[in-house]
Simulated scan of single mutants.
Amino acid sequence: MHFGHSPEIWTAFPELAAGALFAAGIGRDVSVESRIGKFNTTAQSRLAAGPESELPEIQAWRRAFSKMGLKPTQYRCASEQLLRRFRQDKALPRIHPLIDLCNAVSMAFAIPIAVFDVAHIADHLEVRHAGGQETYLTFAGEIEHPEAGEVIFADGADRAHARRWTNRQSGTSAVRDDTKAVLIVAEALHASAGQDVGKLMAALADELDAIWSSAPKIAVLGPASPRLEF
């Protein structure tokens, strides 16, 4: 299997920095509360200085959504959604240890992170423009068809595992109690994106190793090396 972005995405968004991580041996029977506290503290500190909409990482994604023809305050990237809820509620609901960890890391860096159960991905996963024939399964069990030209995460069976790029993932490859192996993707577009994505992936790999004794495979992607094989 492999993950990457289409050449058209790199051309349209040359400022993109992306990190991909593959990890196996993931299980639910662990506690991450003591691990995510430091990331939540970082998020709280950043929000104390101003709302999430003023963070350069979020502003860059808002510009990208506008470029894609989407209203940024209607369709927010995943990290903005998390930070907004965290600012309002002072906490996030617990879902799964891995998701809880990735949410905390995402908020600390203000960079969207997507987590996919690779057992439910067909052949490969690519960030590309939709053709219009792809199917997307909502968490409510409904089937949608992304519009032609929409940026999606698509697999070899023309299933969309995320819509509007970093806005909304699919229920198809969501992490569940029986998830064992995952693909984790972080993407950023701000001025220091390359450096920050590298730091995020290193921090996440350290946490996965400490919690699950995993030895993740990591790649920082770009036009010259656009793919992670796993």
Rank of each mutant, 00 (worst) to 15 (best):
D100C: 05
N167G: 01
A154T: 11
E80C: 04
E142D: 15
A140T: 15
A130S: 13
R87D: 10
I111M: 13
G171N: 12
P112N: 08
F109D: 12
C77D: 15
R84D: 14
S79I: 01
E80P: 00
F139E: 15
V127W: 04
A157G: 09
S170W: 06
L83C: 07
I121K: 04
A78R: 15
N167H: 14
Q81W: 04
R87W: 04
R76Q: 15
T138K: 05
G132C: 04
G149N: 05
S170Q: 08
Y75N: 12
E142K: 15
L92V: 02
V115K: 01
L82N: 02
G149I: 06
P112C: 06
L98A: 04
T138V: 03
F116E: 01
L92D: 11
H124N: 08
V105Y: 08
R164T: 05
A157S: 07
G132M: 02
S79K: 01
H145L: 00
A140K: 15
R85A: 05
P146Y: 12
L125Y: 03
Y75F: 15
G132H: 07
R128I: 07
T73E: 15
A148G: 04
S170H: 08
L137P: 01
Y75Q: 13
W165R: 02
L125C: 02
A162Q: 07
A140D: 15
P112Y: 11
R163N: 04
F116P: 00
A119F: 08
A162C: 09
A162P: 00
I95H: 08
H129G: 15
T135W: 05
A154I: 10
I99W: 01
T138H: 02
T166Y: 00
A114V: 01
K71T: 13
V118E: 07
S170P: 09
A108P: 03
G131I: 12
S106D: 05
L137W: 13
D158V: 11
R159C: 06
P93T: 03
E150R: 03
V118Y: 03
A104D: 05
F153Y: 14
E134Y: 14
P97K: 12
A119W: 03
H120L: 07
L125V: 04
D117K: 08
